[in-house]
């Protein structure tokens, strides 16, 4: 039993990725490799080969018993759930931006995050913080820097 299986998993992961990539080079890019090694496929194919060599290097490191200096931290069950919550917020906010624009969707989303996701009880944080943040970003980017912020399809 080896001390650490880090390099085994890393090597297998990198190798699997490189095989998928090289396969995609032949199915997702038209044309051939070319006699002059100078086609749209050349560099992606070469990168796939480089990646597979790196995968083999990691497997070799596992075989000779290298122990990584920095150990990997596996994902926890709670962590995966929390990440999914965050991703839902990301996607919902981007859809709200599309339909309602920055000025309406931002305070709503910030209120939702602070009140329900992060569980803040302080009313100032729940009500004033979303408005203040929206106002501050609007002031900096629209008034001072004459930049632009997303406009919605409805508002």
């Amino acid at each position: 039993m080896r001390e650490s299986k880090f390099y085994l998993f890393l090597g297998l992961g990198v190798l699997a990725f490189s095989i998928i990539w090289i396969t995609l080079v032949f199915f997702q890019i038209e044309g051939d490799l070319g006699g002059y090694a100078n086609t749209p496929r050349t560099i992606p194919f070469f990168l796939g080969i480089c990646m597979s060599i790196l995968g083999l290097v990691f497997l070799y490191q596992y075989k000779v018993g290298y122990v990584p200096k920095n150990k990997a931290n596996p994902l926890q069950k709670n962590e995966i759930r929390n990440i999914i919550f965050c991703l839902i917020v990301f996607i919902s906010y981007s859809y709200l931006l599309k339909y309602f624009g920055f000025l309406i969707s931002t305070p709503i989303v910030v209120f939702f995050i602070t009140r329900f996701l992060l569980g803040e009880k302080n009313w100032k944080l729940n009500y004033l913080f979303p408005i203040a943040m929206t106002g501050l970003i609007y002031f900096i980017f629209i008034i001072l820097l004459k930049s632009s912020l997303p406009r919605g399809e409805i508002f």
């Binding site: 996607i91 943040m133 970003i137 632009s148 997303p150």
Partner: peptide
Amino acid sequence: PHHLGVGILVMVIVGSYAIRNSFLDVN
């Protein structure tokens, strides 16, 4: 840190959406 995180989240979504008004960019 999580209060600053909320501000960064707003900038992140608005910034990536505003580049080309594209959901693909957000994804």
